[in-house]
Nucleic acid binder design. Structure first.
Lengths: 195, 195
DNA sequence: TTTTTGTTTGACATTAACGTCAGACAAAAG
DNA sequence: CTTTTGTCTGACGTTAATGTCAAACAAAAA
């Protein structure tokens, strides 16, 4: 086929994402990815010049993807509590599909090659911070630096996912038990943040 | 010297810890570590049979070290609020010394080779969970699963450290600004958890 | 058809990181 | 002193992972 066919390229990227984010094989080689995608390794080098390029592309697209997902909720015309609630839902649904994505991103973010593409803070985040400020002025939520409120929300959602392997084994919980725990947290997070 | 001398062995381990936890070079090679320690790479293989062994030892000792630090506070005969406050202090002091330790541990925990040494939950954690339960019964803190309270505490402390490179750059904060933010969080965490 | 263009493959070259080994060396034990 | 034991070094071999290349191939364009 002579037509510009990005089917294979997409397949490789999707496979890489699956391996990294869903299966948690952070040290996968290009061979592993090629095998899983059912193509030869040479093809990986044909579409992406090097392993590094592929990795960075996967990472960047994951960042953008996550941001878009967040933006949609955070800039939606919803009442504040509903917005937060929906945000938690979106976050957990993604986490359910890609259990290792968070941990992967944390690693990359903390690597020294990490560089931000966009310079400014995303518009949606700014809107959300303004929402938070407004709620504080209204007395709906406890007064603090809006940034701290946001950090709290992210923390309470994400951290139990990041440490899941440790906590689940330490307290000898089954998969379903831990998932119940996570599900319970949604209500609890809302109560804590907006008492 | 024919005397059993664990000076060099210790030096290598300490250097590795510094490189991983303080400098954040997670992909450091045995050569890097040997160079930084001022010894030949062969020595690394002499004391630790392989790279894997060295890495696992560093990780395991870091786990134990952290646990001991926590245990000391968590099982101390302190009033609950004081205990939590001190715990946050201990946590942040460690984070200040080893900014990348958390991220490193998260990576390891989420790798598929991760295995827990000890089977049971540490005694100190059990004590802490009982403390929490007691406070809830007393009505001092909001009722929830004690495990969730613990998760919240860890989350609120740790997550802003894990995502520091991302948040700091996104909102264009200087090092001192972010550290101020972190310092402010201590009071805020206490207020949130024990209103 | 022939040509052109993009796709795919297998074989090869390169490299970086790791592990081993024989032997040098120094200090304590005999 | 000689022997023994533990420490250290340099050189070497091995491997796994990556990257490159020429050529085969298929489909669209000429």
């Amino acid at each position: 086929m002579a037509m510009r066919d990005n089917g294979t390229e997409q397949l490789i990227k999707d496979t890489a994402k699956r391996i990294f984010f869903a299966e948690g094989k952070t040290n996968a080689t290009t061979q592993d990815i090629a095998d899983a995608a059912g193509v030869t390794r040479t093809l990986v080098n044909y579409y992406f010049r090097s392993k590094d390029v592929l990795f960075k592309r996967v990472f960047d697209e994951a960042m953008i993807d996550t941001r878009n997902r967040f933006d949609e909720v955070l800039s939606a015309p919803l009442a504040f509590p509903k917005k937060v609630e929906k945000f938690i839902d979106v976050f957990y649904n993604e986490a359910l599909k890609f259990p290792y994505k968070e941990a992967f991103m944390i690693s990359e973010i903390n690597s020294h090659e990490f560089a931000l593409k966009q310079k400014e803070a995303p518009e949606a985040l700014k809107i959300f911070l303004q929402d938070i400020k407004k709620e504080m002025d209204n007395g709906t939520i406890k007064k603090m630096k809006p940034m701290n409120f946001m950090l709290n929300l992210f923390s309470l959602m994400a951290y139990p996912l990041l440490t899941r392997p440790l906590f689940q084994r330490t307290f000898e919980l089954t998969d379903t038990q831990y998932e119940t725990l996570l599900k319970d947290r949604k209500k609890m997070i809302l109560e804590i943040l907006m008492p």
